[in-house]
Amino acid sequence: MKPKVKFSVALLYLSPVIIFYSFIFVLPLILVFLQSFGLYSLGPMKPPKFTLEYYLKFFDLKGPYLESLWFSFWNSALATVIISVISFFLAIFFYFVNFKGKSFVSATYKIPLFIPYLISAFAWWNLLSPGGYAQRLLAATGIVNPNMLLVNDPNGIGIIVANVWMNFPYMVLLITGTLKMIDPTLIEAARTLGSTFWKSIFKIVLPLSMPGFLAGSILSFIGMFGAFSVAFILGASWPQYMSISIYNDVTQFSEYGMASVQSVIYMISAILITYFYTKIIARLQGERR
């Protein structure tokens, strides 16, 4: 039997950790939240005064902020879909197929995990910018129009490419981990009963690997949704990721209030998206059961 510890004593033991986390996580968030209502100033000292001005400006349909939020959302969501598809098939490949040099190939695809985001973004900028090797190759093979912009473009193509490259190994690892937990006799039984390989993959493996799939996709999405360096290097002048808008508002225009509102909206959006995504997937899994 474990000895009982009084709550107050436990709290005292935990107090260093609580204080640390309060200063590192909670306090900055509270200050950003307060500033979004004009009740605190992270920039120059200003007397606190409650205002909804910044929120009204954010939700102005003619203003730039909602468009930035939408662009950040759909661009990251599209990259997440691409990452999910690529990662799933790669994980299946590495799990089911054995070949000579597999360990080497398996190590190679993980390289992006060890390269800082900024370096990766700059590498892709060099490859995809006009005259870059990748751009010239794609144009020469007719895959893209020679005049098509692949970086700093309004559709965020460069951002998607770099995000996919940087995030798919992470998701492959997560899905592979889940695959290893699936009882192989289930697949063998399905195959013995006449199921094709792909049918058993989609009917058995995919549903059972959903936890890894879900965790990987939502973590990738949230990471990309709020990321800065890739959007900064590869993004266009417009539309902008909201992270770039925050950066410009703080460093160029000293609009600390607007930057705070965008930060609050970013946090709330990420929490809501994660919540509903998790709920939807859980419901889908429930129906399947």
Binding site: S129, P130, G131, N147, L149, N152, D153, P154, F232, I233, G235, A236, S237
Partner: peptide, 15 residues
């Protein structure tokens, strides 16, 4: 590339 603006002085001089 109408509508495209290099992201900074270096990006412009790179072109």
């Amino acid at each position: 590339q109408p509508g495209f603006y290099p992201a900074g002085n270096s990006a412009a001089i790179s072109l």
